[in-house]
Design a protein around this nucleic acid. Structure first.
Length: 598
RNA sequence: GCCCGAGUAGCGCAAUGGUAGCGCAACCGACUUGUAAUCGGUAGGUUAGUGGGUUCGAAUCCCCUCUCGGGCUCCA
């Protein structure tokens, strides 16, 4: 939601005199919006010459954008907070009044941003809210008095372009959170702390899964052995499932002639994301940003009959894209990443079944990895688009139909489709509730035409194929980030880099420990013995920190009775006969169980 | 790319103008331990940059560059 709309539309709604809905969510939103006004008043008191942008309520809180004579630093926040508390303690009433636009222009004569907003309001009457010395152009509603705002905290300052447009001046935005009780506030702050503990960047280092080295370059991921184990398991599972579902696995080169990317249109339309060409014997090549042209060339390596369709080419394809500095984010947004890509070539008649198949696969993948809540978005035709309106309508209808057939709940993202076709995106949330695009299903009307990708139909004539680009995880990098945050690093057994660690009580128990290790290794279990001459307590602690699912403590008793003392990373303990444990373990692994089942 | 902040040993941090210190980790040694940190010792940094400046003196102040973090923009 563009913040400025809130204000711009506010007066419209007001002039109709409609403020009907009530309810606690609504009340919280009002409270947060009022907190934004109080913050603006505080900032005005500190910076009398400040210019004001907009200040809406957002999820959990509010922000306000300012244009101030100097930069704000985090040190300013406590000062502004203190001023806000004064305003709150004073219990200033929020006064609403309606004035003509002309009058409003006089009131906001020194406020260029407000004047801009006023000029875009179609009505002749606008509404103002005032508390203390601060007057704002605003639809409202607001709380009765600043005294009603109790639990709030300012979190951060950030730059934000006026109206979200990078050609416009950059304002300073202060973010805050507000709740109706102190308890709710501190609960929320605790949630933020918990999210920081689940941050995949932190867990990645702590669990020794991956790193991003300044020496290699930003946005380029180094997968450490334990991270690589998880990736390998994901990839193996992915490949197996794709083969089951009629995909062919292919490989394509990482470098290809520039001409190919000119044909595909990427050179023209996607150039900002491409790395500079390299010269190979006088020919220009670029490193691939996408896998599609490669798959198309495989398709086009010979004439195709309708009888072969659909053809589904899948590749764990590593691509490189230039991302502007400042947009990289851990594993979730990088410059080199491996997509779990596939391209489906089919006839238009087959499109719906194919989309259903992909949707079902995406859902299966999400469930297999434990993601139970995700958001499905259908993105429709943008303003700039390739192909005819009619084809777009038809394809969008097919996507809708596919969603309906699988009874998937979804939201519509109007105009957010790619220029070459409509798409379905699945968004997964990270620990802080930020949504990341994982699986995506995109219909393409553009590439088949550009590359003349055809098949010979029953009628003996050439027909253009329908093409679907799709991922069912997204990319290995982003998917690992989401998995890490989802599980807080405590992976289900089937994905855990180490599934079992054997901890001998004393050195004399090493032989027994080794015997167990060998048996488990024979069954492909990822196991090791902690044979260091350290105290058992230390080994347990470290295994806990490593979030290893099963710790087997073995001493005299176990060796004598052929048992193991099982400690789960949850802290639960039990004594099990060796065979019994092995059976439960293999069951937990095979069933991809989310809990440890002992 | 833009705004703000930060960068000190592998990690977490201290030292705010007087030539760097702590904890964990690492290494060595002792201990052989029953469910989340045994004890002792050793070594490790030209303070992001084989950048520039101010100063008698810079981790500390200023400029440039790089990287990271919070946002904005972008995200086929």
């Amino acid at each position: 939601m563009g913040g400025f709309c809130l204000v711009a539309f506010s007066a419209i709604v007001l002039s109709e005199g409609k403020q009907t809905e009530t309810g606690s969510n609504q009340n919280l939103e009002v409270l947060r919006h009022s907190a934004a006004h109080v913050m603006a008043e505080a900032v005005q008191a500190i910076f009398p010459d400040g210019r004001f942008g907009i200040g809406p309520a957002i999820k959990d809180g509010f922000y306000y954008d300012f244009d101030l004579p100097r930069s704000l630093t985090p040190d300013d926040l406590p000062l502004i907070e203190a001023k806000m508390r004064e305003i709150i303690a004073a219990g200033k009433p929020f006064l609403r009044r309606e004035v003509s636009k002309e009058e409003a222009r006089q009131i906001f004569a020194s406020q260029p941003y407000k004047l801009e907003l006023i000029s875009e309001i179609p009505d002749e009457v606008v509404s103002l809210y005032q508390q203390g010395d601060f007057v704002d152009l605003c639809r409202g509603p607001h709380v009765g008095s600043s005294g009603e705002i109790k639990a709030f905290k300012l979190l951060s300052v950030a730059g934000a372009y006026w109206r979200g447009d990078e050609r416009q001046p950059m304002l300073q935005r202060i973010y805050g959170v507000a709740f109706d009780t102190e308890e709710a506030l501190s609960e929320h702050l605790q949630k933020i702390e918990e999210a920081a503990r689940r941050d995949h960047r932190k867990l990645g280092r702590e669990l020794d899964l991956f790193s991003i080295s300044e020496e290699a370059g930003p946005g380029l991921v180094l997968w450490h052995p334990k991270g690589a184990v998880i990736r390998r398991l994901i990839e193996d599972f992915w490949k197996e499932e794709h083969i089951k579902r009629g995909y062919d696995i292919v490989y394509t080169p990482h470098l290809a002639k520039l001409d190919l990317w000119q044909t595909s249109g990427h050179w023209e339309l996607y150039r900002d994301y491409l790395y500079s060409p390299v010269d190979v014997e006088g020919q220009q090549y670029i490193i691939k940003p996408m896998n599609c042209p490669g798959h198309i060339l495989i398709y086009k390596s010979r004439l195709r009959s309708y009888q072969e369709l659909p053809l589904r080419y899948a590749e764990l394809g590593t691509v490189y894209r230039y991302e502007r500095s400042g947009v990289m984010f851990g594993l979730a947004r990088v410059r080199g990443f491996t997509q779990d890509d596939a391209h489906i070539f089919c006839s238009f008649d087959q499109l719906e079944d194919e989309v259903v198949g992909v949707l079902d696969l995406a859902r299966f993948m999400m469930n297999s990895f434990g993601f139970t809540s995700y958001q499905v978005m259908l993105s429709t035709r943008p303003e700039k688009y390739a192909g005819s309106l009619e084809v777009w309508e038809q394809a969008t209808g097919i996507l809708r139909q596919a969603l309906a057939r699988l009874e998937v709940d979804y939201d519509i993202d109007p105009g957010e489709g790619v220029f070459y076709g409509p798409k379905i995106d699945i968004k997964v949330e990270d620990a802080l509730g930020r949504g990341w695009q994982g699986p995506t299903i995109q219909v393409d009307f553009n590439l088949p035409q550009r590359f003349n990708v055809t098949y010979i139909g029953q009628d003996g004539k050439e027909h253009l194929v329908a093409m679907v680009h799709r991922t069912v995880l997204g990319s290995m990098e982003r998917f690992l980030a989401l998995l890490l945050e989802h599980y807080g690093g405590a992976f289900p057994v089937w994905l855990a880099p180490f599934q079992v660690i054997i901890i001998p009580v004393a050195d004399r128990h090493l032989d027994y420990a080794r015997r167990l290790e060998t048996e488990l290794k024979d069954e492909q279990v990822r196991v090791r013995v902690d044979a260091r001459s350290e105290r058992m307590n230390l080994k347990i602690r470290q295994a806990q920190l490593d979030k290893i699912p099963y710790m087997l403590v073995v001493g005299d008793k176990e060796a004598a009775e052929h048992t193991v003392s099982v400690r789960l990373r949850s802290g639960e303990q039990s004594s099990e006969s060796w065979d019994n444990f092995k059976e439960k373990l293999s069951l937990a692994i095979a069933s991809k169980a989310k809990d440890l089942g002992i």
